[in-house]
C-alpha cells in the first residue's frame, strides 16, 4: 500500500516508517502538515496515518481537508490526546481509526492491515495471476509447490506488476509507485530491480513472464 505518514517528531516518525516499509508498504514520511496537504493532492494514497499535533496544519485539519477533496482512503489518527471528547473530534473529522500514543508497532501494523481489508481494491491476502501467487503478509511468491521469499523492494515491484497485469508500465510509473516522495532513486534503479526480480522468477521457472517492451517499459503476463 502507498501510505502517507505524518508525524512531526522524527524520533517517532522514523521507526514507524521503517516498520511499515519492512512489511512491504511504500511510505511517504513527512514532518509537517503543509507538505502533507500538498502531497495528498499529488499522490493517490491507500492510507493516511496522521499525528494530531503538527506544525502549521494540524492532523485534524488535514483529515478534514482530505475528506473535503472527496478522497476516500482510510485515515488513521495517532495522538497523545486520549479523552473521549478528543476521540470523538478525531473520528468526526473523518478519521477511520484512532490510536493513542505510545503506539504499539504491532498494533499499528494490525490496524493498517485491517484498514487495508476495507479498501475497495482489497483482493485478499493473496494476489494471483494464473498459477503465480503473491502472499501479501509474508512477502512470498509461490508457484505450484515452489515458494520463494522476496525482499521488500522486489515484493513491492511484484505487487505493483500483479495489480496491473498485462499492462505496459513505464519506468517513470514504476519509479513513482515504488519510491517514496522526495527520494531520488539512481537512474538505473528500476532496471536493476527488474533484473533482480527476473532472477527470482527464474527459480520458479517464470522468468519470461516479466517482459521488457522496448522503448516503453515492462509488462507482466502469463505466456500461456
Amino acid at each position: 500500500m502507498l501510505i502517507l505518514l505524518v508525524e512531526d517528531d522524527s524520533a517517532q516518525l522514523e521507526p514507524l516508517q521503517t516498520a511499515l516499509s519492512k512489511v512491504g508498504h511504500i511510505v511517504d514520511a513527512v514532518q509537517d502538515g503543509e507538505t502533507a496537504s500538498w502531497l495528498i493532492k499529488e499522490r493517490e494514497y491507500d492510507l493516511l496515518i496522521l499525528d494530531w499535533m503538527l506544525p502549521k496544519v494540524s492532523g485534524i485539519e488535514l483529515c478534514r481537508h482530505y475528506r473535503n477533496l472527496n478522497l476516500a482512503a482510510p485515515v488513521l489518527m495517532i495522538t497523545a490526546k486520549d479523552t473521549t471528547a478528543d476521540k470523538v473530534t478525531g473520528l468526526d473529522a473523518g478519521a477511520d481509526d484512532y490510536i493513542v500514543k505510545p503506539v504499539d508497532v504491532l498494533e499499528l501494523l494490525a490496524r493498517v492491515r485491517a484498514l487495508g481489508r476495507r479498501s475497495p481494491l482489497w483482493q485478499g491476502e493473496m494476489i494471483e495471476l494464473a498459477d503465480l501467487r503473491l502472499d501479501l503478509t509474508h512477502l512470498t511468491l509461490e508457484r505450484g509447490v515452489d515458494n520463494i521469499q522476496l525482499s521488500v523492494k522486489e515484493f513491492q515491484l511484484m505487487e505493483y506488476l500483479m495489480r496491473h497485469p498485462r499492462q505496459v508500465l513505464s519506468r517513470d510509473q514504476i519509479e513513482q509507485a515504488l519510491w517514496s516522495w522526495g527520494s531520488e532513486p539512481e537512474s538505473n534503479a528500476v532496471t536493476t530491480l527488474v533484473r533482480r526480480l527476473r532472477q527470482r522468477l527464474e527459480t520458479l521457472g517464470a522468468k519470461d513472464w516479466l517482459e521488457t517492451v522496448y522503448g516503453m517499459g515492462y509488462r507482466l503476463h502469463s505466456p500461456n
Partner: peptide, 24 residues
C-alpha cells in the same frame, strides 16, 4: 494535562517503537 501527556508520551512512544522495530 494535555501538554504533560504529550511531553511524557513522546519519548515513551519513540522508545517503544524503536524497541519493537529492533525486535522485528
Amino acid at each position: 494535562t494535555a501538554d504533560a501527556s504529550h511531553e511524557l508520551r513522546a519519548p515513551i512512544a519513540a522508545i517503544l517503537s524503536n524497541a519493537q522495530v529492533g525486535l522485528l
